[in-house]
Design a protein around this nucleic acid. Structure first.
Lengths: 187, 187
DNA sequence: CGCTTTTAGTTAGGCCCCTAACTATAGACC
DNA sequence: GGTCTATAGTTAGGGGCCTAACTAAAAGCG
């Protein structure tokens, strides 16, 4: 839904050509980058389109999934802050999500009597019914999307993706990618 | 920036456990799915964070890149409709992007004298200066993100991603993933 | 106890993204 | 020529995402 990046990926030859005028451009790295964003976007759209048939978005789906406590063995978030952390969004974003979910009667907020700063969020019966009705199709979608990959290929893919995530988290705190970035001329 | 999906990915064992109560759940497929979205999101954030230092977003960056005609050999979009198609967004979205880019003096709209329904969009000198100032860092970011992958791994990754994209585009038109989807009980 | 810092959550404002509906022009066909 | 359809672009309205600023409660500390 979100990404917006070159639906028609530039041809690889074009990247190689462009590399001549941009010394920093690494053609194969750019190719992976673009394909990764594009694939993520495409997969996201397919899953989201299915969820939309049940009138919920990815964000709402994620919140409901996190609150579904019948998933044994998984730690159970209860507060907006925990939900935001696990979903990887800002707390203000989670406030908005819970607002609309509560408006639609899918979750319920209750104040925590022990710490009056905190809220406790829980699924309503209606919310649980909805999320359970969506899950089978969602699982089928995921299985269908990956159906062309062997088990070995899936393992390889996850391993390579994790290498990138690792690198991304290394890069994200400082965000300084090269010495000259800090001293680059202001625009 | 956009995705929102389980920053802390559920443990694989948890998926296996959950598979017992959800027959449609394919654990390895779900694992790939979640890792793919998470990696795409993480990579997107890193790139976006860098672009933000130059006061532009991914969407704006993409539009400016598409308009930068010094990339030889690449077809040159000129109208909002072409830009929208190549960027993979709705035309209304492109209208909004061009609105803000024009407001900031980075692009310019001009009516097409031959077909008065059409507009022609072009970079201003200010826009070209900006995009050129951003590119070196952006290329470095992409290279850094992929620096842990060998050339062979990059090829493998692109190949596997393309398998998924292929499957996603197969699935997207009909979106019916299994026979019982159409006949599922309404919620 | 009172003051400061920290933490939970919300509010305010903005951008990106969508679909649906609308305006205006162009093209096709009688 | 006049209508009917198709196309380009915009507008309207909504959701999700963000950061920054705010309120309220808790916790640390003299």
């Amino acid at each position: 839904m979100p990404l917006l990046l070159l639906k028609d990926l530039p041809r690889y030859e074009c990247l190689l050509e462009a590399a001549k005028s941009f010394p920093d451009l690494d053609p194969s790295a750019s190719e992976v980058f673009l394909n990764l964003l594009r694939t993520g976007d495409e997969v996201f759209r397919v899953a989201d389109h299915n969820l939309a048939r049940h009138e919920i978005s990815q964000g709402r789906f994620t919140v409901l999934m996190l609150l579904l406590d019948k998933m044994e063995n998984c730690p159970q978030p209860r507060t907006p802050a925990e939900l935001a952390d696990m979903a990887g969004v800002a707390r203000a974003t989670m406030t908005g999500l819970i607002d609309t979910l509560e408006r639609d009667g899918l979750v319920k907020r209750e104040p925590n009597p022990e710490d009056r700063r905190m809220m406790s969020v829980a699924l309503t019966p209606k919310g649980e019914t909805l999320i359970r009705s969506v899950l089978p199709d969602h699982f089928k979608i995921m299985a269908a999307l990956m159906s062309q990959l062997s088990e070995a290929e899936r393992k390889t893919l996850v391993r390579l993706l994790n290498k990138i995530v690792q690198q991304a988290t290394n890069l994200s705190p400082g965000t300084v990618v090269a010495p000259d970035v800090a001293t680059a001329a202001p625009v």
